[in-house]
Structures are given as C-alpha cells and as structure tokens.
Write a protein that binds this DNA or RNA. Sequence first.
DNA 1: GAGATGGCGGAGAGCGCTCTCATGTCTCTT
DNA 2: AAGAGACATGAGAGCGCTCTCCGCCATCTC
Lengths: 335, 335
Amino acid sequence: MTTAQRPTLEAVAARAGVSRATVSRVVNGSTTVAEPIREAVNRAVAELGYVPNLAARSLVTQRTDSIALVMPEAATRVFSDDQVFPGIIRGVSQELEAADKQLVLMLAGSPAGHDRVERFTTGRHVDGVLFASLHGADPLPGTLARLGIPVVCSGRPLGDVPVPYVDVDHVGGVTAAVRHLIDSGRRRIASIAGPQDMIAGIERLTGYRSAMAAAGLPELIAVGDFTRESGAAAMHRLLVEHPDLDAVFAASDLMAHAAMRTLREVGRRVPEDVAVIGFDDIETAAYTDPPLTTIRQPIVEIGRRMTRQLLRLAAGESIEPAIMLPTELILRDSA
Amino acid sequence: MTTAQRPTLEAVAARAGVSRATVSRVVNGSTTVAEPIREAVNRAVAELGYVPNLAARSLVTQRTDSIALVMPEAATRVFSDDQVFPGIIRGVSQELEAADKQLVLMLAGSPAGHDRVERFTTGRHVDGVLFASLHGADPLPGTLARLGIPVVCSGRPLGDVPVPYVDVDHVGGVTAAVRHLIDSGRRRIASIAGPQDMIAGIERLTGYRSAMAAAGLPELIAVGDFTRESGAAAMHRLLVEHPDLDAVFAASDLMAHAAMRTLREVGRRVPEDVAVIGFDDIETAAYTDPPLTTIRQPIVEIGRRMTRQLLRLAAGESIEPAIMLPTELILRDSA
DNA sequence: GAGATGGCGGAGAGCGCTCTCATGTCTCTT
DNA sequence: AAGAGACATGAGAGCGCTCTCCGCCATCTC
C-alpha cells in the first residue's frame, strides 16, 4: 500500500548536515537558530517533503493538537434542517483553523455512542472537549472537568456542575418578543415550548412565563421538541384548548413554521388572526409565508466563543465561567 | 493542570503480575492468552482505569484509526440550511462509529485552509480521506491517491482522476422529473441549473438537456449556485427571457423554494400557471407552499457508502471504482 | 520414556519526536 | 589578554506502545 517511506527528522537532519534537535527547533519555530542553518534545514524539509509525525510528537508533548466537539442524539434529529448544529460546527472550525488544531466530531446518540465518547475523551485523546446543547444532566462534562480536561459547553449545563459555558440571552430575547406581541395588541398569547430537558427549552419557556406574568396575562402552553412535527401537534393542541388565542411564540423556527402552516390549515390568517414569532432565525425563516418574525441568536459566534474559551483553558489560562451572547428580535411579517 | 498520571501498560502489567506484551495482547483482543491471565489483566485494567495511549499506538502501528472528511467552502455557503452536508456527516459518523474510528472534520474554504488540508492529509495523519462534493478540479484527491492514501469522493471528481467515488443517479432523477412535467402537459419547461464547476450541477443540467432534447423541446436555462438568492435571481431572469414558461426544474430545493416565491411575487400561481420541481428533498420541501415536488437523493446513505468504501480501501481490500445510488421523484403539489 | 510438537508468555528493540543537559564557540569585560 | 558569560548546537534519554523473536513447559508420539 504505502509507496515511499516518509522522511523523518533524522533524514532531514542528515540532509541538512545538522542534528535532529536543530531540525526540531527549526520546525517548531525556535528563534535560537542561526539564519544560514535555518535556511539549510528549511531547504532540506522542502526537498524531502518532510511532514512531522504527529503521533510521535504527541507522545512526547502530551498534547494532541485536536479537540473534540460532542453533539448528542446523532442518528435522529440533529442535522434535520435545524441550522444550529451546522452553525456551531462552522464557528468551531473557524477558530480551530486559526489555531491550527484539528476538530474531531463525535455524534453521540446511542448509549454505546456515549460510552465511546466517554472513553475517548477521558482517555485524553484530545486536548479539550466541546459539548453542544446537552440533553438532560449528562455527567460527562463534570467528570472531564474533574479530571482536569478542558471542557466548555454551549448552554448552561443542567445540574449544578461547575463547567464553563457559552450561551445566548434566551430570556431577554423572548421577553422582547412577548412585549412586541403585547404592544401590538395581542392578549391571548400562547407558547409552543421546547423540550424541558434542554436548557434552551427551559430558558425560553421561563422567558415567556415571566414576561406574561409581568403583563398580568395568562399562560397558554404546549410543549414540543423543536421539530416541525412537534410544532404542528402542539399548535393543534393549543387551538383545541384555547380557540381564542391571537398570538403564538414558538421556541424554535421549525416549530413556528409548522405552527403557521397548521394555522392556515384551520383557516386562521397569519398575522391578522394570529401573530407568530419563532426563535433561531434560520435561513428558512425569511422564506416562509409570511416571512417569520423571530429571535436571532448568533449561532456561529457561539461556536467561535466556545472554542476560544476552550483553547484558553487548554493553554492554562483562566477564563470567566460563563459568557452570554445577545439575541435580537427580527421583525418580519408574521408578527 | 493534569491531575493524576495516567496508568500505562507497564502499570497494568505490574498490577496483574504479567508482562507488557501480555497486557497488550489482552487489550488488543488476541486469543492466545489463557483465561485466568486474561481475567487478571482485565481486572487490573478496570481497577486502574487504563486507557491506551493512541499516540503511542499510532507511532508503532502506523495507523491512526481516524479518517478525515473534507468539505469545501467552509466559511460561506456550506451549512446554510442545505441538508446535504449535515446528512453526509451523519452517514459517515454512523459507519465510523461502527468501525470504532474517529472523524476529523475539515472545512476548507480559504486557500490557506486548503493548504492546511493538504498538509494534514498528505502527512498521513489520518488513515483515509473523504471528499464531499468538490468544486472544480481539485488536484488533492488525485495526489492523495497517488501517494497510496485511501480516498473516496462524493460525486465523480472533475478531471479524469482515477479516484473511487459514490454518487447518485442525477440524470435518472432529472429525466423522471422532466418526463413528469411533459406528461402533465407542460411544454415550456425551464431549468435553474446548479454551479457548473460541481459535478452535481453539471449532471443535473445534462439530465435536463438530454430529456428536453429527447422530447424535442427547447432548452430554457438560467444558472444558479444552489442557494436561494441565486434561485430567485435566476427565476427573474427566466421570466424576463421566457415569459411564457409553464414549468421550472431547479437543481436544488433551495433554488426551487426561492423560485416559487418569486413566481408568486410576480403573480404566477404554482402549480396552475407554472409547475416547479426541485432536487434534494430537504425537510423544508414538505413545508413549502405549495409542498414541493422534488427528486430525493439518499444523502445519509451516500455518507455511509463512502465510508464503507474507504474503510475497505484502508484495510487493503479492493473496491469497485464507482457506486451509483438511486434517486426518486417525490410527487407533492408543486408539479 | 525420550524427543518432537505446539502454544503461551516474556524480553527487548524500536516507532519519530522533543527536551534537558552538556559542550563548544564567540564576544565581552576588566 | 584571560576569564566569564552568553548563546548556539549536539548527544541522548525517553514518551507508551506493538511485535518479533525466544524460551519454557505441557502434551503428544513412537
């Protein structure tokens, strides 16, 4: 299979007429090498097409120059057409590229998959681990943190594990949305909530409830799981239980999209009869009919910030335990 | 930073009262170890929480047990809400999990990013490389193949590089779509083509042209780049140049979606005045207004098959140079 | 019963790299 | 001008693992 033997440090050293140590210095950018020698080494490297063996380097440095991004529920819902996960990947990837580190992506769905992630990460095969929107109270981030392995989560982890995280201002965004609905005269404002075992689902519902309470309005709630199917089902339930509703805040654009469709199917006009607001601002939101008013969250930026924090942690620096990014109400036509 | 020193093979050997070699045998599942000894070793492994150091293993085995998935145009369009890339990731991930290998994801957008990918992959830091829908005639897959590094592409690579690939039957799918339009009485059938530097864009246009030629109908073509924006622009152009068109085949669902919207904006009804068919069958397709008739391609399966081929290649087996997966016309309401 | 056979476990040599430490070479100081 | 200091380079010891021998012992054969 393998064609030519890869050149080693030794080979480069021989060719350049210096020692392995010197080649290593040049390759790793040490400044204490005389210019002519440096040039000779670089020439030898180029001529031989030398590329360092990362395994050998890792073995001695105890670093791998790679970090893991762990995402739950692989096989099923992730990546449906939710843009959250891809956006995070993009942000992570951008920052890692800048730091010249590799991204090991782990999609953990099954219990077996979770074990695999645990073995891999606790085995220190990566310099740090990023968790994207956990479900429930996964003990793994805490375990890793206790082992001294750098960890950063997207979204505050459930349970009181002291793990640094990056999140968006769910409550602020939802409050702005509900206030907008109230300001435009709506009073029977329902909410299609997200899954209550995810921090994003919990916080967005909290935001809705406190905003409604502050306005002295009653809560009309149905719980979904961020998907379109669940959104349609929740909308149906709300219509049965509260036929007089005049607005809906859905905790995801996907659910909002399905809700609008359901509303039309039963003959309600959006926004005339029922105003609809979503959350996420996925690209599709601008193309729904009518275009969806929604709360934008800076997905790619979440990925970037998580990564920056992680790299800082891995470099031994200390970081603030939580970063909160702003959300923004994007007004279109649905509300 | 690091808390406890990780146990090594040596430590396990000492604890179990055997040699390093024997522990290695047990850990790697050799059958030539007596049952009681095997048990003693496993107990020691469990008690010490031993996890093999992959770097050390790689150094001697010359394998890394990881493969790279390279995707182009990182920072910009990938992951918009196109589900193609996420779907492939999912398929790849599933197969790799089964094979207990790691996925290193590389998003190559900038030239610098491409260099980085080249350095990393030619440096044999992974056991194989998967390329997802290349742009133009990238020489990298060919280079890697020549170096004896296992490579599999999604979509036939442009240029005549002898690299194994997995693709779908673009032409067959498009032919079925055009035939459907013709069968339902359409005669002024336009196409919004995909980018002509990608095999998917090229093949889908080819399919359209040959189907139209076979029916003796004239070609009405505008080229986009698979995105919604480009789809809307192309639709506008087509309407100007061919105001009498009565059907549109768009080479992606995103473009089809935008085309439908554009058609409605100018007062054409879908499907009464103009029938629309897309390609991909992304989840949103079922939720457009009207629901989009489209050509489904088995995205996740592409990822799985690519991976299976690559693993086979990495295992030294020989494989068929090309795999073609079927497409299917999904009839909804837009055509 | 003695030699042949076979299988299980141990010893030890690296895989390619980094990094400490020692050595050699200049330059500077007094 | 001689010793001290500074700095660049080389030598060499591993990092933790796998894998090829080799030896040992139990079993088998004639």
